[in-house]
Amino acid sequence: MSAVRLVIGNRNYSSWSLRAWLSLRKSGVSFEEIVLPLDTPEFAARVGQYSPSRTVPVLQHGEHCIWDSLAICEYVNEQFAGGEQWPGDPAARAFGRSLVAEMHSGYGALRGAMPMNFRARGRVVARNPALEADIARVIERWQTSRERYAADGPWLLGRFSIADAFFAPVVVRFGGYTVELPPGPVADYAVHLRSDPDMLDWEAAAAAETWIVQADEAGVEAGTALASDD
């Protein structure tokens, strides 16, 4: 098989990199990781070598280059995961794809107010109606998913799917920004995802990163909007 390479941003901040990485990791295929520190001269100097859009994540597989997180996950599912990252049932698959499409293009208030930050602990941000609506919508989607597919396993659609890869950064956001989750299926899902071995590996790598944005120690987020496909 041709070599597989995934180019990502800082693990601490790059939510879209996490989505692509988790899908690839769950596929079981061996791959090389290249990490470019976001919002740095190094990123600006190197990203053009890998990404036609000058954003991350980027998947390279032989002569193929895929530079959007959802396209990467779909490619990984088809090429390396044997289609197992979507349910076999057409209705469940359509439901999962609807969840992912909404996450891929929506939840703007949540993204803006609560950027992903694995180092965030106990942070509180001002809540407005748009943010509250996004949070409530995520919780409702998780609740519906877990009630509908609980018999098939602990993930949103039973088995791990691209939907879980897409909501993984949201679980991290909720944990860092003191979003209280209702007990039962929703809270249990968040615990399950955060304790997953692959998520723990990513979190450990994020903690070991040496390029820490100085302002982050004061609770100010890195400005990563121009460096990811978010």
Rank of each mutant, 00 (worst) to 15 (best):
V4Y: 01
L6T: 09
G9S: 07
N10D: 15
N12Y: 05
W16T: 14
S17C: 11
S17E: 13
S17R: 15
A20Y: 14
R25T: 14
K26S: 00
E33D: 07
I34A: 04
L36T: 12
L36I: 01
L38C: 04
A44W: 08
A45H: 01
A45D: 05
V47R: 12
G48Q: 10
S51D: 12
P57R: 10
P57K: 08
L59S: 06
L59A: 09
Q60M: 11
E63M: 06
W67I: 05
S69D: 07
I72E: 09
E74C: 03
Y75W: 09
Y75A: 04
Q79V: 06
A81T: 01
A81Y: 00
A81C: 00
D89C: 06
D89T: 06
A91G: 11
F95P: 10
F95A: 07
A101D: 12
G106R: 08
L110W: 10
P115A: 12
N117K: 00
A120G: 05
R123K: 08
R127T: 13
N128K: 07
P129I: 01
A130M: 03
L131S: 04
E132C: 03
A133S: 12
I135V: 05
I135P: 07
W142E: 02
S145F: 03
S145L: 05
S145H: 02
S145R: 04
R148Y: 13
Y149V: 04
Y149L: 04
A150S: 15
A151S: 13
A151I: 03
D152W: 14
D152C: 12
D152M: 15
G153E: 02
G153S: 09
L156T: 00
G158F: 01
R159Y: 06
F160Y: 09
A163C: 06
D164I: 08
F167Q: 05
A168S: 13
V172L: 03
V172R: 14
R173W: 03
R173C: 14
V179I: 15
P183M: 14
P183W: 14
P183Y: 15
P185V: 10
V186H: 01
A187L: 02
D188F: 00
A190E: 03
V191I: 09
L193P: 11
R194V: 11
D198F: 10
E209C: 03
W211Q: 11
A218M: 09
V220P: 01
E221V: 09
A227P: 02
S228L: 11
D229Y: 05
D230G: 11
